[in-house]
Amino acid sequence: MKGNKDMQTAIQKAIALIVSGDRELCNILLVTAKMSLSSSFFALCIGVPVGIWLGSGRFPGRGVLVVLNRTLMGMPPVVCGLLFYMLFSGVGPFRKLHLLFTVTIMILAQLCLITPLVIGNMETYVSGIAGSVRETAMGLGLGPVKTFFLLANESLYQIFSVYLLAFARAIAEVGAVSMVGGAIAWKTNVMTTAIMQYTNRGNFSLGIALGMILMTVSLCVNIVITLLQRRFR
């Protein structure tokens, strides 16, 4: 009974925090939005063309690249975080860039995690349609650039789906961003790292508030992308 009451109080406090526009909460939201939107957008910019190229290309070594990418798709976030930590820490080769514990390195680490997912999904989809598109385009005397854009146009629906996947991974990710970002309050704390922090401190209301917002943001992005998908289907 007491547990239920505590939970109820925490949820009430969480709603009050959201409604009052708590400054710390707003800051966490802004950092999260900046990080997840940037990393998913850049992952899409890199991953879509590479995925199309890999899915439609006929060149030696293509199979090796596909296997390599599929391996990177399963990279644990903490391993990615560790790698970036070592590269940018005081003893790493990129220490002079002073990027450790900044939002920029969090975006870079996420880019490293998400881009293989975008490439892999695009490659799988494009390889299914590439034969027909390439053969038809070749029969019309169209060059490789035009064929590439035709493939991109044919994959438009898939590109939206892949963006959803990239964004979902970015906003829900915790391992890599906590290692390279350090979850510093007012600077690099994002929703997932903040939920962990506040839960550890026993501050359930802020944790629940963040959890509710995280799910709501995810729902909103899904609705927008689904509507766009319908429009461009």
Binding site: V133, E135, T136, M138, G139, L140, G141, L142, N153, L156
Partner: peptide, 24 residues
């Protein structure tokens, strides 16, 4: 040698019929 080719399995690109034809 300029070659035009219609594959056995015809493919309609995700655009209007007229735009498809103008690709040719």
């Amino acid at each position: 040698c300029k070659v035009g080719y219609m594959p056995q399995k015809s493919y309609g690109f995700r655009m209007s019929v007229e735009k498809n034809i103008l690709l040719g």
